[in-house]
Design a protein around this nucleic acid. Structure first.
Length: 470
RNA sequence: GGCGGCGUACCCAAGUGGUUAAGGGAGAGGUCUGCAAAACCUCGAUGCGGCGGUUCGAAUCCGCCCGCCGCCUCCA
């Protein structure tokens, strides 16, 4: 069995066959940099981060491109509100994006093109469409004539007639059809603008992705991805433009991640239910968030909850505890190779449309089995299995830190929140040790209870008493 | 109105025709321990929103009904 990918275009799982041998070219629509990234963005980013990692795990040479939309109405509006330039707004949120990406443990794409740096490519593409009669100009605006592209609607399974019937937006009278969309917009006073054959203006939203994907990956390329909400109209329009221009498919497989909801509703500013990446990572471990997302399938909706995140964090802690035990038992792993059975099992699950929930279940099966070996004091095969576990974790972007660091971070976060200090806790532990030596256990248990009431649990190990967060 | 999705144990969540319905969290009992914690062992849905149907056999396919949601407009 080989990798099967669900493609929005065909509406079913298909065997993945790269267009060029061992190489995979993938383009994912990135963020519009006009505000802080929220956890919905994080879900999309993590989804494709894992897809990227898994393709590499399969030994493909992967060319991963993810753009920044650094030019659009929202950025311009934001700049006006703040009395600055759209360049400054974009630069600020790109910087924030990188901080968030780093915190989330995202692998960096090979290319991260920005719309503003590809104006010549965009103009060339529009000109090509114009030459083919697939663009028309009205007063410095250039539109794409949807009715001239018969396959329009094939990705989102919509018929143009039905769309027109249901349209309830204000229609620009100058367009031939309400569905036609802007390739180029004449710029208003004070907006960023570039010289073009149609006068001073700026690109429409969809065209940048067509221009940049072709620039870095050619056409067709293998995988195009993004959030489910981009299917229509963004990706539909990209297909129309690119395929009208070059008469070959834009991309072979179309992957879309499901939404992240809050209280069963989509996150939106008007509902005030947006959580930014930074505020969540302020409260929870990044790997907890990653685990939380990966324990649902990438195409399913997730209803975000604090409880879910807390449970996920405990789950990650369980894995780290086991890795910590292994490390103490086998300080140097030796020349072992990763256990092939575990890797095969992982591959079997992931080959089925990146089934991360099953992959995670497999990790926990392995954790239990390893703990049993450790309990029994057996070390045969331990090194190979822990190496495999680490490889699997790495492919999911989990288990990337030394175990003690994860455990320590959780503790630090907790005591800070509780207003406790190390010294205070350690004093109590020493005091408890003293009374225990004198067998005054009741007194010792009182100290334990006192700490437990503040979320600290004590573990008496052969090496002394350690403490953890409940 | 059109298109699409979802409803599985206390919570989260896999599973889309066939032995005992994954895994995590919470819970109960046990082993270990001075007592705990961690770990391990055991238990936990005779049933997968409801009602019919197809089939030797369905959580899985079909129909109807109930409930929830998304897209059709910028949006990850």
């Amino acid at each position: 069995m080989s990798l099967q990918i669900y493609s929005t275009l065909s509406g079913k799982k298909e065997e993945f066959v790269p267009l060029r041998g061992g190489e995979v070219r993938i383009y994912v629509c990135g963020v519009t940099v006009y505000d802080s990234s929220h956890i919905g963005h994080a879900r999309a980013l993590l989804t494709f981060d894992v897809i990227y990692r898994y393709l590499k795990f399969l030994d493909y040479r992967v060319i991963f491109v993810r753009n920044f939309t650094d030019l659009d109405d929202k950025i311009i509006r934001r700049a006006q509100e703040e009395g600055t330039t759209s360049e400054a707004i974009a630069a600020k949120y790109i910087e924030e994006f990188y901080q968030d990406s780093h915190a989330l443990g995202l692998l960096r794409p090979a290319q991260e093109p920005k719309a503003t740096e590809h104006i010549p490519e965009i103009i060339a593409l529009i000109r090509r469409l114009e030459e083919k009669g697939m663009a028309y100009q009205v007063d410095g605006d250039v539109f794409f004539p949807v009715e001239r592209f018969p396959e329009y609607g094939k990705l989102s399974r919509r018929k143009p007639e039905e769309l027109e019937a249901g349209a309830r937006i204000e229609v620009d009278e100058r367009k031939r059809s309400p569905l036609d969309f802007a390739l180029w917009k004449r710029s208003k006073e004070g907006e960023p603008s570039w010289e073009s054959p149609w006068g001073t203006g700026r690109p429409g939203w969809h065209i940048e992705c067509s221009a940049m994907s072709t620039r870095y990956l050619g056409q067709p390329f293998d995988i195009h991805g993004g959030g489910l909400d981009l299917v229509f109209p963004h990706h539909e329009n990209e297909i129309a433009q690119s395929e009208a221009a070059f008469d070959v498919p834009l991309a072979r497989y179309w992957i879309h991640n499901g939404f992240l909801n809050v209280n069963h509703e989509k996150m939106s500013k008007s509902l005030g239910n947006i959580y930014t990446v930074r505020e969540i990572l302020d409260l929870y471990e990044p790997e907890g968030l990653r685990h939380y997302f990966l324990s649902s399938h990438y195409r399913s909706p997730i209803d975000f909850s604090r409880q879910g995140l807390e449970e996920a964090e405990k789950a990650v802690e369980r894995i780290y505890e086991t890795m910590d035990r292994i490390q103490r038992c086998l300080p140097t792993p030796g020349p072992s190779r990763p256990d092939a059975g575990i890797l095969e099992g992982f591959r079997r699950e992931m080959d089925d449309d990146f089934n991360t929930p099953r992959a995670i279940a497999l990790i926990f099966d392995e954790v239990r089995s390893l703990n049993r070996l450790l309990d029994e004091g057996k070390t045969a095969g331990l090194a190979a299995r822990s190496l495999a576990l680490r490889a699997v974790g790495e492919t999911l972007g989990l288990l990337q830190r030394p175990p003690e660091m994860f455990l320590m971070n959780r503790r630090e976060r907790w005591i800070k929140k509780q207003g406790l200090s190390h010294a205070e806790i350690e004093d109590l532990i020493r005091k408890r040790d003293r009374v225990r030596k004198e067998k005054r256990y009741q007194e010792g248990d009182r100290i334990r209870e006192e700490l437990r009431a503040r979320g600290i649990v004590l573990e008496d190990t052969p090496g002394g008493t350690i403490w953890k967060v409940k």
